[in-house]
Amino acid sequence: MNLTDILAQAGGLQSVARDLGISEEQAASGAEALLPAIMGGMKKQAQAQPAGLAGLGGLLGQLGGGGLFDQVLSPQPTDPSQGNAVLGQIFGSKDVSRTVADNAASQSGLDSGLLRKMLPLLAMLVTGYMAKQAGGAGQAPEGSGSGGLGGLVGSLGGLFGGGGAGTPGAGGAMGALGGLGAMLDANGDGNALDDILRMAGKTSR
């Protein structure tokens, strides 16, 4: 089961569709195109943390934790401001967000303006889901792991082909991230998000 399926089962994509006035099919198509970029940004954040995934878990809490997931699922219209804060953290530039949306538009056939509105909502769902996996806030969504760092590592490994990384040690963490990176790295250079950054002209190399 991929992340789009998990978010759909949890009601996340239904909530996104409601907020944006689109069909659930359109929300799923947009999510399929946008989620790899979001997860690529999360991977980069994990690599940038001195404690790896443990540091990422703390960062997820600072960004709003599991409450972000619940905000999107709330029947009230979702305030995207915290989602934009997440995007600012993982992408570092509105130019990158625009490029991600434009690239997703070419893949999905959806309007890039709509996808720009969808990005912060998906960022909130992903951040909240991962925070719940890490035991950062509240109870994890049904069907998720046991919580804690091991839950987060296992979640990443299971979602992105890293296998059963059952232990929270550095090897398990990097194994999960390695599987994610292999899925997201478009040009095979070992760096997932740089493919997106390069399109926006933000890579210093």
Rank of each mutant, 00 (worst) to 15 (best):
D5G: 02
D5T: 08
L7P: 06
L7C: 02
G11N: 09
G11R: 04
V16F: 11
D19V: 11
D19G: 15
S23Y: 14
Q26S: 12
G30D: 06
P36S: 07
G40H: 02
A46L: 02
A46V: 04
A54M: 15
L56G: 03
G58A: 11
G58S: 06
G58I: 05
L60R: 05
G61Q: 15
G61D: 13
G66C: 04
G66H: 11
G67R: 04
G67F: 00
G67V: 04
G67A: 07
D70Q: 08
D70L: 14
Q71D: 15
Q71M: 15
V72F: 12
P77N: 13
P77Q: 10
T78M: 12
P80C: 06
S81K: 14
Q82E: 12
L87P: 00
S97D: 05
R98T: 14
V100M: 13
D102F: 07
S106K: 15
S106P: 00
S106D: 05
G109A: 08
G109F: 04
S112Y: 06
S112L: 05
S112K: 04
R116N: 12
K117F: 06
L122N: 14
M124E: 12
Y129S: 09
M130Y: 03
M130R: 00
A131H: 03
A137R: 15
G138H: 11
G145P: 13
G147Y: 13
L149T: 11
G151N: 05
L152V: 06
L156R: 07
G157M: 07
F160A: 00
G161M: 01
G164W: 05
G164R: 12
G164V: 08
A165N: 14
G166C: 00
T167G: 07
G169W: 05
G175Q: 11
G181Y: 03
G181H: 01
L184Q: 04
L184G: 01
D185E: 05
N187D: 15
N187V: 03
D189T: 01
D195K: 08
A200Q: 10
T203N: 10
T203D: 08
S204L: 13
R205T: 15
